[in-house]
């Protein structure tokens, strides 16, 4: 195996997968029948099952993709059942699960560098205006930062509960934003330290030229 998940038989280029995913998710939005959506979800789960059996990714990783959505879908579906009826609730829940499942398969079966390469090749015609490398870097950084920042939100929410100011949105957002900024500044420093970019000194020199 060369480069971990990047190798293996039947490898589909990321751009093609991206196209397939886009078409699939778009058609989910167009579907309004619970039966059709249930079939779509079954298809997604079957594909995930095959890929897990082929050891492309672990079932735990796939469950982790769906997990956070599950606890969200259940109350949302209950609310929708009450507001808009059981059929609308089923449509929402099935659509979300099928879309997230498909997106999860795409995410898990596409190593991030490959995904970034794909975006890079999409951007190539615009080379004069956009630096594809930096775009790729910022996208990867964001993907990396989502669990980090979500963790910050979770930690602050707990602290807020402990202090009994659970209801104030501001009491949540101020520390979250400050810590997000701090995390980003540390990350920016790490980027420089790891040679991804010039440091403060070179910037000064280049401005002087």
């Amino acid at each position: 195996m060369i480069g971990g998940v990047a190798a293996g038989p039947g490898r589909i280029p990321a751009l093609v997968k991206l196209g397939v995913l886009a078409v699939f998710v778009s058609s989910l939005v167009a579907l309004h029948s619970p039966v059709a959506l249930a079939i779509a979800l079954a298809g997604v789960l079957a594909l995930a099952g095959i890929l897990i059996a082929l050891r492309r990714f672990g079932w735990r990783a796939f469950a982790a993709q769906l997990g956070p959505v599950l606890w969200l879908v259940v109350p949302a579906a209950a609310l929708n059942a009450w507001l808009a009826g059981p059929e609308a609730a089923a449509v929402l829940a099935l659509r979300v699960l099928a879309a997230v499942g498909a997106a999860g398969i795409f995410t898990l079966s596409t190593p991030v560098p490959e995904l970034l390469d794909a975006i890079g090749s999409l951007l190539r015609p615009f080379r004069r205006w956009v630096d594809a490398d930096r775009v790729g870097l910022v996208l990867a950084l964001t993907i990396r930062s989502v669990p980090l920042v979500a963790g910050l939100v979770g930690a602050v929410r707990e602290a807020r509960k402990a202090r009994g100011v659970e209801r104030s949105l501001r009491a949540l957002a101020v520390p979250v934003v400050l810590r997000t900024i701090q995390t980003a500044e540390e990350l920016g420093e790490a980027l420089i330290a790891r040679g991804a970019d010039d440091g403060p000194s070179e910037e000064r020199v280049s401005l002087g030229r």
Binding site: G3, P111, L141
Partner: peptide, 13 residues
């Protein structure tokens, strides 16, 4: 803080 030094999503990357 290793969290702020890790810039890519997976270990290998």
């Amino acid at each position: 803080n290793p969290d702020s030094q890790i810039v890519m999503p997976t270990v290998r990357e």
